[in-house]
């Protein structure tokens, strides 16, 4: 399967990149390349958020190990066994990580979902599993 990875790494940090590092880092995982691209673009329209998108689990796990994310957005097309695996791995590495299902595919719900999750509000996101081992 072709992996869509929407991120950039630089050996030397520019001022712009330093500003990016100060933003809330969000990992977006979704199987549909067009939707993934739309979600990343929409998240990045918010000046306080910085999204990295990937379509593959292995890439998501690697990114999660390498970077400090505050929120993981699970998009469409992720099978339940994949979702459970990702939730377990992410939670083991960071028990405070917020993992939410994004519904609608880059829709008018996106901003609300992220805002609610960051404020620890249930916010209508029905699939929140803070700790899959509980």
């Amino acid at each position: 399967m072709h992996n869509t990875l929407l991120t950039t790494h630089y050996p030397q940090l520019t001022t712009q990149q330093k500003n990016t590092m100060n933003k809330i880092q969000i990992l977006v995982i979704g199987r549909d390349a067009d939707i993934l691209q739309a979600v990343v673009r929409l998240v990045n329209k918010n000046e306080h958020w910085n999204a990295t998108g990937t379509s593959e689990d292995e890439s998501a796990i690697e990114l999660f190990h390498q970077h400090s994310y505050e929120l993981v957005l699970l998009g469409g097309g992720i099978a339940s066994d994949s979702e459970l695996k990702l939730r377990k791995i992410f939670t083991l590495q960071n028990p405070d990580i917020k993992i939410i299902q994004h519904w609608g595919g880059g829709s008018g719900l996106l901003k609300n979902e992220i805002q609610s999750a960051l404020e620890n509000n249930e916010g209508g996101n029905f699939n929140i599993v803070d700790n899959p081992f509980n």
Partner: peptide, 30 residues
């Protein structure tokens, strides 16, 4: 935050669109 949904009903938008205008191509899932 007090107005997120009613059960599984998540969106109820009452829309008025001007002549010839509309929502360009955009994605949805689930």
């Amino acid at each position: 935050p007090e107005r997120m949904h009613f059960g599984v009903l998540r969106v109820l938008n009452d829309d008025t669109v001007a002549g010839g205008k509309g929502f360009g191509t955009h994605p949805h899932d689930n």
